[in-house]
Design a protein around this nucleic acid. Sequence first.
DNA 1: CCACTGTTGTCAACACTGTTGACAACAGAT
DNA 2: ATCTGTTGTCAACAGTGTTGACAACAGTGG
Lengths: 235, 235
Amino acid sequence: MSTSTRSAKGRGRSTALSRDSILESAITVIERDGVAALSMRRLGDELGVDATAFYRHFRDKDDLVLAAYDRVTGELAAQIRTIAPDVDWRTRLHSLAWGSWQLAARYPALFSLGWTRTTGGEAESEIVEYILAALASTGMTADQVVLHYRMFGDTTLALCGMAASVAAMPAELRGKDAAAWTRIYAVLPQAEYPAARAHAAELATVGEEDIYRLTVEAILDRIEVTIASSHVSDR
Amino acid sequence: MSTSTRSAKGRGRSTALSRDSILESAITVIERDGVAALSMRRLGDELGVDATAFYRHFRDKDDLVLAAYDRVTGELAAQIRTIAPDVDWRTRLHSLAWGSWQLAARYPALFSLGWTRTTGGEAESEIVEYILAALASTGMTADQVVLHYRMFGDTTLALCGMAASVAAMPAELRGKDAAAWTRIYAVLPQAEYPAARAHAAELATVGEEDIYRLTVEAILDRIEVTIASSHVSDR
DNA sequence: CCACTGTTGTCAACACTGTTGACAACAGAT
DNA sequence: ATCTGTTGTCAACAGTGTTGACAACAGTGG
């Protein structure tokens, strides 16, 4: 509807392009057709507009990707904002860990492009504040707070980023998902790779979420140990 | 020396191109000039040869990158091969964790390109076998072995990959290293981000290696807990 | 010594990519 | 009605990975 958005010769301005509409289209394209499909020409087609029109709203492609990444990160920020402030630190961090996982699962292509970057956006700051506040509430020293913040933040981010990168890979590149494990390790020579052969079956069936859950628990357990031992040295 | 390798019209074959010499040049170029600098034309220049000559030795660029990645991974495989087999599992995994870290530090650009990929190469298999064997020696069940293998392997790989990706970024993209932390979090409004403001100084000074060390210890501790608790349920 | 065969580097070309600068069509304000 | 700033269009540039036809060589068999 609206005003046809354009057509062949459509020089009319009519439907305005905006940062928001471009971001929306970009996210749609990249998640539907893959990270390699996000080109300026392709994005222009999607919006019914010339490829270079986009440069009136973003400095360059990197700027667009970062803005899109920060936008979806906003969903995670909104999610943790609903958590009651009196919840204990462990469940707060646990919630965040799973929020990140779900975000990476929902936008694998975009997440794989942005997770190593520092956007400096509002959503990012909010999440950092959330983690630091949770850890500070345990009574750690400032040094311990930031160290454990980075342990928790880096590990969850990196694991989610890895999962997203694998999920966003062109289907023919990643070796048919979990099947790769069986294909590769089931055929290794028994003599040189006894352990790999012995565990080939289990390697194929282990769940990605179970791995993530176990790792997050390990991190949180470690934080608890630190808290306990620092209380001991207090007295 | 040799036979000039070529020169303007040099149609002579003379110095043969080989998989090895191409790999060597590729690794040199990518680590010296960055991941974006590894183009076929650029690689051809480096070797004194036409850009497309390379296709006689590799299927495509992805094939080259994967081969290069597997080659440097061989250095890690060689390193763990020197570890005496009677060493306990924990020090074995600890050594591997630091070997990965050093590898990522030595070849950040290449590591950032390859760490999410499954090469299926010999070096990769050797490392997998190494971890599985170490964990199997603890007396865990097969399910527990693979679960904890993935926890250890995924986490160390992802953290090293993240560090490599950041290190391999074009200098102007990553916000001047650690300085970004101060630039961003020191200027946040005190009212909304009290924890971030309170820890701005510590955020800037925390060492990357300390974070990695702490995380690895957390993973290894968790494995010990699992071992202990499974022995309890044994009796 | 010659002819044949397979290998390997060369060259031109293709279909892409991100990005820029000149231009034109419009909206709103004077 | 004119002037101004915004925003989409178009042609072009320098760069990318990759392909197919061609030619120079090495080694082999007669």
